[in-house]
Amino acid sequence: MDGMTATGVRAHARIAARADGRGGTALPVLDSDGPLALRRTRGSGGEARVMVVGAMSGPLGGDRFALDARVEEGARLHVGSAAATIALPGQTGGAARYDVRLDVADGGELRWLPEQLIAAGGSDLYVTTRAEIGVGARLVLREEQVLGRFGEEPGRLGSRLTVRVAGRTVLDQELACGPGAPGGWDGPAVLAGHRSVGQLVVARPEFAERPPAARMLGENAAVIPLAGPAVLVSAVAPDALRLRRVLDEALALLG
């Protein structure tokens, strides 16, 4: 672990996946760090699976977490988490930060499917997710953010999601919610009173020739083709359970 300072905990965990030459995937790098504990679990069909297990509470105010995952050519990696991540206020004050960097080489495949991120009352967190994928790479990336636990006001949550395919940016979006966020975040143009928001990005080489059509999924979700072999599903819902249901249905629809 990078350690604990007067301003919070520093932690940087790393995963690297590589084809093992026998139809499977090896994990030459699986480095846990402090609260970011990585555990390999049973995979299937040549896919390696890793679970992120929270070894302590956080991120708290002032913490700085980072998680990098690299998938090399021909490797297949599935990353999930054992439980929701809960952003909490810290004793040191100040905002927390959580940076995720994903790199999928040409012909690699990554399924990034963590549990929800919950912004508890009084917390202040900025999270970034940046995915770089190569030609012929495949990606399924899910983000789910929940504003507050049951019956409490939300904390402040800022997020930025960037996806680049073959060196070209196909998605770069930011969202700020909760106390102190720019006005209108809870209005009809953004969350419309909902407390759960999610994104699903699916990138597949076959989308270059047959991109999914733009469409609504019920009243609160939409399929949006991106400027590349990728598609975005954006959704809001009253709670985390209904948000997951919508995103699962969207993923099934996309095959």
Rank of each mutant, 00 (worst) to 15 (best):
S57H: 13
G122S: 00
G8S: 05
G108K: 12
D248N: 15
G158T: 10
R22K: 14
R215G: 07
A13F: 08
V246G: 01
M216G: 00
T162L: 04
E174Y: 00
L191Q: 13
D2Y: 09
D103Q: 09
G24H: 08
D106H: 09
L113C: 02
A137N: 11
D186V: 02
A221G: 08
P225I: 06
P238T: 03
L36M: 14
A95M: 09
A208F: 08
A240R: 12
A120I: 05
G93E: 11
T85P: 04
A19V: 03
L139P: 07
E144K: 02
E132Q: 13
T169D: 03
D186E: 14
V9G: 00
D103N: 09
L200P: 06
A84H: 11
V223Q: 11
I86N: 01
R40W: 07
S196P: 04
L171H: 14
L110P: 06
I133E: 01
L139E: 08
A131Y: 00
A19Q: 01
Q145R: 13
D248W: 10
G198K: 08
A6H: 07
D186G: 14
L200I: 09
L67N: 06
A252D: 15
V127D: 07
F207Y: 15
V236R: 12
T169E: 15
L102T: 10
G184Q: 13
V190F: 07
G46N: 12
L36K: 05
A17L: 08
D20G: 14
G218V: 04
G61N: 01
A189L: 11
V50D: 08
V202M: 04
P205E: 05
S32T: 06
A214C: 01
T128N: 02
G74F: 04
G46D: 13
T85Q: 14
L141K: 04
L27P: 12
G178Y: 09
D2R: 15
G54H: 14
G187F: 08
L161P: 02
E109S: 13
E153H: 06
P179T: 10
I86P: 00
L30T: 10
G155T: 03
